[in-house]
Design a protein around this nucleic acid. Structure first.
Length: 488
DNA sequence: ATGTAC
């Protein structure tokens, strides 16, 4: 598409971040009106409460959200979840739905870690059954799953990598159930190998089944409470039960895909008459050659991430077998797998939309076609990792999500301090000892990496999920507390 | 997030 691009003729300098006309719309929703800036096409809306807004106001994320509201083809509003924080161009915790075929796709609206996401496994044992074997299990998890920047596993080179890019989780799944109980069946359609650069493929080769660094982790947990019994039962979660939460993405491959297409789209902005308040919002019409190539490469990188979490799950099961035996391995079930950095084509009402979710999770309600049969009556499982040492949550999508946020909810606690600010305030070694003193087994190669992920660097995850429940986007099902954590 | 600067 070329001449029909819905581009508004505007050019202006980025706003100062000092003042916002942030109006309270209702108990959980705040809005910066579209007339706050001449270049905004739609309002900027954030789900929050007063105390979370105080943390949000300290970075540039609301200015970034207004920048998103200027993008060609955006419908209704640029939305943010209560875990919003500053990101590359788009805020993390952001949601932007573009009307197809003329709206844009923006790599920054997906993020550098394409299909960063979360998978939850439920073991057939309780914390009591595990007893003193807890430390051994965390140790085996750490041995089985390479962690840290640039780490490799040697898995998936050559033709095996191509199959991963096209088929996603099923390329390495050992059980059909793992594929059925995953968002989009663990595979995004439309992936192509040729649009993924040679360099991206080289970076991904050998990285399947690795965790990475930053906020990625594999955590051993206990179900601390089940708040919604029917959904808890459907998801196979009961109090005291042991779970493993996997948080990882597309590693170097997805990072390179984002780098490649940010640059490629930046070079052709003029061709499509697109003017941006921030070059990090680099984008192209979804139906243009550049837009279509990005979407095919993004799907391939998303499939790599689905397969990566699958291979990590395979390795978790082997660690479970070594420590707890064959029956425990056989009884370890996958609850679900969610993507929280991806753009998807979805029909909402009578419109076909490209929904960018960056640090935001799909949360389809009960009755949705794209929710597995076994969960159809209670809604899509939503997996919310907390910060290190704090609770994580299992939610279920609610009907309000389709009415208010294109079927979307939050993705985590959300940063309130940058990585560098966190490192200044916390010594990694002290944090490690503090967690161990609380009985949480920690395995990580890097104290500096640990410090970046200190709980004080994050907003209160319990407050975040309370807001999305009050907003009607998702319902709290179960709280998970850490027993041990393996980090990069 | 990331071969944490091509």
């Amino acid at each position: 598409m070329t001449s029909s691009s819905p581009v508004k003729e505007v050019a202006r300098a980025p706003m100062s971040s000092s003042t916002y006309d942030l109006r309270r719309v209702d108990e959980t929703l705040y809005e910066i009106p579209a007339d706050a800036r001449p270049d905004m096409r739609v309002p900027a809306r954030v789900f929050a409460n007063e105390s979370l807004l105080a943390a949000i106001g300290r970075d540039a994320s609301l200015e970034q959200l207004q920048n998103v509201a200027t993008l060609p083809g955006i419908v209704e509003a640029a939305y943010a979840m209560p875990d919003i924080h500053q990101g590359y161009g788009f805020p993390v915790g952001g949601l932007a739905a573009m009307e197809l075929p003329d709206g844009v796709v923006s790599p920054g609206g997906v993020g550098y870690d394409i299909n960063c996401g979360v998978r939850l496994l439920a073991l057939p044992v309780t914390d009591g059954d595990l007893g003193t074997r807890r430390e051994a299990l965390v140790h085996e998890l750490a041995r089985a799953i390479p962690a840290g920047a640039g780490k490799t596993s040697g898995r998936a080179n050559g033709t095996a990598l191509e199959e991963v890019l096209l088929e996603g989780a099923r390329a390495v799944a050992e059980r059909d159930e793992d594929v059925e109980l995953a968002e989009s069946g663990g595979r995004l359609p439309g992936a192509e190998v040729a649009v993924v650069s040679e360099r991206a493929r080289q970076r991904g080769a050998g990285q399947l089944g690795t965790m990475g660094s930053g906020n990625h982790f594999v955590e051993l947990q206990r179900v601390d409470a089940v708040l919604a019994p029917a959904a808890g039962k459907a998801f196979g979660l009961s109090p005291g039960q042991v779970t493993v939460l996997i948080h990882s993405g597309s590693r170097g491959l997805g990072h390179q895909v984002c780098t490649d297409y940010v640059r490629r789209m930046d070079a052709v902005l003029g061709r499509y008459g697109i003017e941006l308040p921030d070059r990090q919002l680099s984008c192209a019409p979804a139906s243009s050659p550049e837009g279509r190539a990005y979407l095919a490469a993004m799907a391939a990188a998303a499939n790599f991430a689905f397969a990566n979490r699958q291979e990590i799950a395979n390795r978790v099961r082997r660690a479970v077998e070594r420590v707890l035996g064959r029956d425990a391995e056989r009884g370890t079930r996958q609850v679900y797998d969610v993507a929280h950095n991806v753009a998807k084509v979805e029909r909402h009402g009578d419109r076909e939309l490209l929904v960018h979710r960056k640090g935001a999770t799909r949360a389809f309600p009960p009755g949705s076609d794209d929710v597995p049969d076994r969960y159809r009556d209670v809604g899509q499982p939503v997996l919310i990792p907390g910060s290190m040492g704090t609770s994580s949550w299992v939610l279920a999508g609610s009907s309000g999500s389709l009415e208010r946020s294109f079927g979307t909810t939050c993705h985590g606690a959300g940063r309130q301090l940058s990585r560098t600010a966190a490192k200044k305030q916390v010594a990694g070694g002290d944090l490690r000892r503090e967690l161990e003193a609380r009985g949480i087994v920690v395995r990580s190669p890097s104290n500096a990496g640990l410090a970046e992920e200190a709980p004080l660097a994050y907003k209160d995850v319990d407050g975040v999920v309370e807001v999305v429940e009050r907003a009607g986007l998702a319902e709290r099902v179960a709280r998970l507390v850490p027993l041990g954590v393996v980090k990069g």
